[in-house]
C-alpha cells in the first residue's frame, strides 16, 4: 500500500438518492439538515481495508448451499448473479470484497427483527460474500428473493431485491446499494427506489436477464455491474503499483 494515491474524484451527489424524501418516511428524521462539509480527500479516505481470500469459506458465494454447509439446498428460483466492479474511468477494481444479503423466496429475512409471517426457509440464510478476481469480476449463486410488505405508506411492497456492499480500495469509495430485477412492476412503485431522482440512475440498479450466462436445466442469470468512485491522477503524480 502506498500513501500517494491521488485524491478521489468528488462524488456527484446528483447520481445518488436525495437524503430527505417524505415518501420514504424513515428518511425524514434521519437526514441531515445542514450541508455536508466538502474538501479534497485525504489519506484517511484514500486508504482502506483490504481482505484476503483467507477470510472466505468454500461456499461463501453460494447462498443456495451455504446456510446448511452443503447439506440441503434452499427453495426458490435458482439464479446466478454476476458482474464486474469498475471505477469511473472504467478500470476494473480487482481483489475487493463484495457482500450481499437478501430475503428468501417468500420475502422473509432471517433476522431477529423480521416478523413477516411468510415462513423462514430452514435451508436458507441469506448472506454471501466474495472477492473480485483480477478483472474485477464476481459471481454468486442464490435464489431469487420474494417481494415483501413494509410499514411505510399503507400498502407498500419492496420489489425483489438483493442488497450489495462493496469496499473498493479506499474507505471513501465505500458503497451500499440494492439490485433489482428486470421487469419487476414493483420497481416503479417503490419509494426507496424513487429516492433516486435521475431516472437513468435508477436503471443502473436493474439487472438484466442474462441468458448467455444461464446454465440450461440449472439456473437463470442476471448481470449487475457496479461502478465505484475513481481516483484522480495526473502525470505529475507517482503511479502506485497496480494502477
Amino acid at each position: 500500500m502506498t500513501t500517494d494515491l491521488g485524491p478521489l474524484v468528488p462524488r456527484d451527489r446528483a447520481a445518488h438518492p436525495v437524503p430527505y424524501d417524505v415518501d420514504y418516511k424513515t428518511s425524514v428524521a434521519r437526514s441531515p439538515h445542514q450541508p455536508l462539509l466538502s474538501m479534497e480527500s485525504t489519506p484517511s479516505e484514500e486508504t482502506g481495508p483490504r481482505f484476503g481470500h483467507n477470510i472466505l469459506g468454500p461456499l461463501d458465494n453460494n447462498l443456495i448451499l451455504n446456510w446448511t454447509k452443503g447439506a440441503a439446498p434452499a427453495v426458490g428460483e435458482r439464479i446466478l448473479v454476476h458482474g464486474r466492479v469498475l471505477d469511473e474511468f472504467g478500470r476494473p477494481v480487482p481483489q475487493t470484497l463484495v457482500e450481499i444479503w437478501q430475503a428468501n423466496a417468500g420475502g422473509r429475512y432471517r433476522h431477529v427483527k423480521d416478523t413477516y409471517f411468510a415462513p423462514i426457509d430452514p435451508n436458507f440464510g441469506g448472506c454471501g460474500r466474495t472477492i473480485t478476481d483480477y478483472n474485477g469480476y464476481y459471481e454468486f449463486l442464490t435464489i431469487r428473493p420474494g417481494a415483501y410488505p413494509w410499514p411505510n405508506r399503507a400498502n407498500d411492497w419492496r420489489p425483489m431485491h438483493i442488497h450489495f456492499s462493496i469496499f473498493g480500495h479506499s474507505f471513501g469509495q465505500r458503497l451500499i446499494s440494492q439490485m433489482y430485477f428486470e421487469g419487476d412492476p414493483l420497481i416503479a412503485r417503490c419509494p426507496i427506489v424513487n429516492t433516486i431522482k435521475d431516472r437513468s440512475q435508477i436503471d443502473r440498479l436493474v439487472a438484466p436477464l442474462d441468458m448467455a450466462k444461464s446454465r440450461p436445466l440449472d439456473f437463470l442469470a442476471y448481470k449487475m455491474d457496479i461502478v465505484l468512485r475513481g481516483r484522480r491522477q495526473t502525470m505529475f503524480e507517482n503511479k502506485p503499483e497496480g494502477m
Partner: peptide, 13 residues
Amino acid sequence: NLRETPSQTAGPY
C-alpha cells in the same frame, strides 16, 4: 467516464 452506481439505504436488516 462512467457514473458512480447510486447508493441505496442499507435497510433494517
